[in-house]
């Protein structure tokens, strides 16, 4: 943990005003300021999304004309049905969610194991291996594409979900993140457990993992979102139409036969739903008692 010594915190405190009226007026205004800022920022961040939603209910002829609102063509809600008619959208949906769930699970599980080894166990060469781990993040993925593809071919994983799940499930990033979380858990806890005769596995399952829960959730959100969006690797790996993930399947609407932007936007709007659900469900655990460890080299 960072060591901010209390005596540095020379915060001058003013005498609290006692007049109740003044306080409530001041609170009234500070709430208003806060809300105004929040609404303004949300507005700016959501606006493109609003545009996306509005475009998704336009007719193709009206896409890109001045007004944001659908014009004479009316509000075309059946664009959403049209998406399902033109491409096997439900199949892509299932594929994407399925792959993202598997990757998230494997990633969280193996990363937590590795992070445990890097933060809790002592073994020769540990820090060197960790630097090696870190440095794998620093080489652009593009140059590894072809060698990786060759590996996939020799394993027979091209055009299979395995080929999308397994390589994405082991990354240095997850290990790095969880290691930082684990470092901030006091050593005394697991030492106490070991004195009680607990094995390393027990320490991992019963002491460290529960303490790292916010870290696991963070990593789960990051991984799920990242994988749900991943484009380039699935693009190269998948060949059969019924195995496409959403980002690949949506290419259909951005075609040479004319970009069907309205349908594309409808499809994007629908593809967002699982992520919103995952985010809303997980975010409340995220901020409960989270501890990000001090970074120690």
């Amino acid at each position: 943990m960072s060591t901010t010594e209390p005596n540095h915190l020379a915060i001058p405190t003013r005498p609290v005003r006692t007049a109740k009226n003044t306080v409530s007026v001041r609170r009234f205004f500070s709430t208003w300021v806060l809300h105004t800022v929040l609404v303004a920022l949300s507005f700016a961040l959501v606006l493109p999304f609003v545009w996306l939603l509005l475009t998704s209910v336009k007719t193709l002829e009206e896409v890109g004309v001045g007004s944001w609102l659908p014009g004479k063509g009316g509000w075309r809600w059946d664009n959403y049905i049209e998406v399902f008619r033109q491409i096997p959208f439900a199949r892509y949906y299932v594929n994407s969610i399925f792959i993202a769930c598997w990757v998230t699970f494997l990633q969280v599980f193996t990363s937590s194991l590795a992070a445990f080894a890097f933060s809790r166990l002592d073994w020769p060469g540990r820090d060197k291996v960790f630097v090696l781990y870190l440095s794998t993040m620093m080489l652009p993925g593009l140059v590894m594409m072809i060698p990786n593809y060759q590996i996939m071919i020799s394993l027979g994983w091209v055009d299979r979900f395995t080929g999308l799940i397994v390589p994405a499930a082991f990354t240095a990033f997850g290990t790095f993140l969880l290691r930082q979380f684990m470092l901030s858990i006091p050593k005394a806890l697991d030492e106490a457990a070991e004195i009680d005769g607990a094995s390393k596995w027990r320490v991992y399952w019963d002491v460290i993992l529960p303490m790292t829960r916010p870290g696991l959730i963070t990593l789960a959100i990051f991984t799920f979102m990242g994988n749900y969006h991943s484009f380039f690797w699935p693009l190269v790996m998948l060949k059969s139409e019924f195995r496409y993930t959403l980002p690949i399947g949506l290419l259909y609407f951005d075609s040479t036969a004319g970009q069907e932007t309205n349908l594309l936007m409808a499809a994007v709007a629908m593809s967002v739903i699982p992520m919103v659900i995952v985010f809303i469900l997980l975010q409340k655990y995220l901020v409960k008692g989270i501890q990000l460890g001090a970074v120690k080299g």
Binding site: A114, T136, V143, P147, N148, I151, F170
Partner: peptide, 20 residues
């Protein structure tokens, strides 16, 4: 503990890194 992740990283990252 390290084995699953390490093997994965080794196969899908370190090997291509050395290759490159």
């Amino acid at each position: 503990f390290l084995a699953p992740n390490f093997l994965g990283v080794l196969a899908f990252t370190v090997f291509p890194v050395l290759f490159s």
